[in-house]
Design a protein around this nucleic acid. Structure first.
Length: 738
DNA sequence: CGTAGAAACTTTTTT
DNA sequence: AGTTTCTACG
């Protein structure tokens, strides 16, 4: 048979062929997790336990979902369109499309991505005269998403204080607005489909009876709502199979709850846990480094990866004078690897450069470009997020759903048609007054009226066109192409618009996309796709290229050689994260993910100075670097270089102008650890320092994020996570080190 | 209303 | 540094 069960190790085989019952699989990095998951689905189908239609498989990224479908269809002759394999959001969308009426949504409802959602929040906040200094749109957005991810509607949120009351009020207004426009944000997709099934017993029974096996990948990244969502799909006969790795939980910032793993074990698998601890990916030194690093975390379920591969090379460590220096090193080393120096030749696509934040890619790109190395950047500004593409999509969305106010505002005066801020304001007033969409509030004999007419004409003209021709027509008829052609630097944008036509054509031909639900037009299907999958479409050109991405987007991938760059305090771990409860542990897990991407070679690099937001930051090496035992590392730069270089910096500073020298201290960057030092001198009396974990009788566990005052009346600011951030007087609050 | 240039803001990770 | 938003003027 084509399942190749004989190639599995005993634990893997155990997981794949688990008899009836729920199960939790704790799968370490590189332990063959995806393989187990897909082989189990194939095994379930082949052994006649279930038909393809009875399987629900949930992954976290679109990439992972596609990978699973590809592998599965290679093992078994199944029609991929009949499979319910996808991301939580993708599947939720599929469900809502199929039952839009029961869910209270228009058939052509549109999906708001993060940007779109923020626009709605901003617009509404203006309309409601919200004081943006007290309630920043971003914070309101985060509040709404946070509540939805906990499964709460505005009416479910207890509003203890005035601030919360205001937020809840806004939350309610926001949902009402979205409903009026016929749009749904990411969290709404989940919550709405959850409520649908919860409320509608017939539907629930239908799906519970249908899905006999539910399999979930990356379970550690699920939030509370997603867990409840899964439980709702599981009927009495349904068997749940969850695969996860608590050490790779890196989405806490978006509401992921690692606790779901333990919860699942208690509720479902009842102690039945399969551990996959043999790593087939990395050589010994790399794995040892990962294990050593992660052992610094306290909140772990416990697991140690091992490999039967040899130790391999040591980890190569490079210290650069500057970010540009670091980038140059990476470019040179990549060239050397490709030439085959120091071992087997590598292809560019076997090599990855990873970084903590997207902003870091720029310097790297510059160096790679200079060295004529082909590269591909994943993430960052995605294709469907580019302004010109968003504009084109706005026209398409209006054709599908004219009530979409976001799209109306984006398209109405772009290209400019004399509909200025004034007219828009009047329109919005009229719309609010009559409780209708902007589109419906338009006066026929105005400039906006002409725009409305344009949209209506487009609706008619494109009605019977195939999707690619429709898009082609729209980008011309809207005037977008014309507009960008006349713009000085518009050539790229014209190209992207033409690329959009290709993307549409490719979408229609990709049979891994789920079967369109009845009555859903190809246009609506494509628009959902564009919102849910910001477009890693660039993979189309098969050119061999260096892979560049954030550590987050590298999860689940592996490479022969990995460059982990920017290992600096304040960057990795990120300074923002140190402020968050359990933030440092999450950063460490992120570093763990990065390390375990590498098969043979791992480079760790950092820079003494880095340009960030127009300022030079002076940084120290990341603590994570120190947490990796010296015996595993090989320094490519002398370890005492830092002091020497620091001295030469000082002498360089002498050449600065008088004014610069006076301002010198202003742009000197101190990592949090250092900034806390003046405070930590008071340790004897206060006993605490920034970044420290503490325990409070009432608020529970927290982390100190700021401090002020000295010995006698020292006060500390503590982030208690969900309990909020509080200033506490050290003398009064009985804080305990935790 | 539209534009150019100035000022202000950003400042993590993503479905 | 790069991007978005504001302001002044044609």
């Amino acid at each position: 048979m084509s399942l190749h069960l004989e190639h599995l190790n005993p634990e893997q085989l155990d997981a794949v062929t688990l008899p009836d019952g729920h199960a939790l699989v704790l799968a370490g990095a590189g332990s063959g997790k995806t393989r187990v998951l897909t082989t189990r689905i194939a095994w379930l189908i082949q052994s006649g336990r279930v038909t393809p239609g009875g399987v629900l498989a949930v992954t976290f990224t679109n990439k992972a979902a596609r990978e699973m479908v590809t592998r599965l269809t290679a093992m078994l002759p199944v029609n991929p369109r009949g499979l319910w394999i996808g991301t939580f959001h993708g599947l939720a969308n599929r469900l809502l499309r199929a039952h839009h009426q029961e869910a209270g949504l228009p058939r052509e409802f549109q999906i708001l991505d993060t940007q779109d959602q923020l626009s709605v929040v901003k617009r509404l906040s203006k309309a409601l005269n919200i004081d943006e200094d007290r309630f920043a749109p971003r914070d309101l957005q985060r509040f709404i998403n946070g509540q939805k991810e906990e499964g709460l509607r505005a009416s479910d949120v207890p509003a203890g204080d005035e601030v919360t009351r205001k937020q809840v009020e806004f939350f309610a207004a926001y949902d009402k607005q979205c409903q009026r426009e016929g749009v749904a944000d990411f969290a709404e997709l989940l919550l709405r489909s959850f409520e649908l099934l919860k409320r509608n017993e017939i539907l629930r029974q239908h799906y519970q009876a249908r899905f006999r096996y539910i399999l979930v990948d990356e379970f550690q990244d699920t939030n509370r709502l997603q867990y409840r969502w899964l439980k709702l799909f599981a009927g009495a006969e349904t068997r749940l199979f969850a695969v996860g790795d608590d050490d790779q939980s890196i989405y806490g910032f978006r509401g992921a709850n690692v606790g779901n793993l333990a919860e699942f074990e208690k509720e479902y698998s009842k102690g039945k846990v399969v551990r996959l601890e043999q790593n087939y990916r990395s050589q010994g030194n790399i794995l040892d480094a990962a294990n050593a690093l992660i052992s610094n975390n306290t909140q772990r379920l416990g697991k140690n990866l091992w490999t039967s591969a040899g130790q391999g090379d040591p980890l190569r460590v490079f210290e650069g004078e500057s970010d540009a220096d670091e980038a140059r090193f990476i470019a040179e080393e990549v060239s050397a690897l490709v030439r085959g120096e120091g071992g087997a030749r590598m292809r560019l696509s076997d090599i990855a450069v990873l970084y903590r934040s997207n902003a870091q890619s720029r310097v790297l790109e510059h160096a790679l470009f200079g060295a004529a190395i082909a590269y591909r950047v994943y993430g960052g500004l995605r294709f469907f997020e580019r302004a010109e593409v968003k504009h084109a999509l706005a026209y398409l969305r209006l054709i599908a759903n004219p009530s979409d106010d976001n799209s109306f505002l984006r398209a109405a005066n772009f290209p400019p048609r004399g509909i200025g801020a004034r007219s828009v304001e009047q329109l919005q007033d009229a719309a609010t007054r009559n409780g209708v969409s902007l589109f419906n509030a338009v006066e026929p004999k105005s400039k906006a009226g002409n725009f409305k007419k344009l949209v209506e004409e487009l609706q008619i003209e494109t009605k019977d066109l195939p999707l690619p021709e429709m898009v082609e027509h729209v980008i011309h008829r809207s005037g977008l192409i014309e507009h960008y052609k006349n713009e000085r630097e518009g050539a790229d944008r014209v190209e992207n618009l033409e690329e959009l036509v290709n993307a549409v054509a490719a979408f229609g031909q990709d049979d891994r996309n789920p079967e369109p639900e009845e009555e859903i037009t190809p246009l609506v299907a494509f628009l959902s796709h564009a919102a849910l999958e910001a477009g890693d479409h660039q993979a189309a050109d098969g050119q061999d290229a260096l892979q560049m991405m954030t550590v987050h987007s590298a999860k689940g991938l592996e490479f022969n050689a990995v460059f982990m760059s920017g290992l600096e305090e304040g960057l990795f771990p990120h300074e923002q994260s140190v402020m968050q409860k359990d933030g440092l542990e999450e950063e460490r897990r992120l570093a763990y993910v990065a390390i375990t991407r590498a098969r043979q070679r791992l480079y760790l690099s950092f820079a003494q100075t880095r340009m960030l937001h127009g300022q030079t930051r002076y940084s120290l090496a990341s603590r994570f670097l120190e947490e990796i035992p010296e015996g595993l590392k090989k320094w490519l730069t002398p370890r005492f270089a830092r002091q020497q270089r620091a001295m030469s910096f000082e002498s360089a500073g002498r050449k600065q102008s008088q004014a610069d020298r006076n301002a010198d201290n202003k742009d000197t960057y101190f990592p949090k650890k250092e900034a806390a030092s003046s405070f930590s001198r008071n340790r004897d009396t206060s006993g605490f320092r920034i970044g420290q974990n503490v325990q409070h009788a009432k608020f529970g566990a927290g982390v100190i994020v700021d401090a002020e005052g000295d010995a006698g009346d020292a006060r500390v600011q503590v982030n208690f996570g969900k309990q909020g951030v509080k200033w506490l007087a050290v003398a009064v609050a009985k804080l305990q080190a935790a």
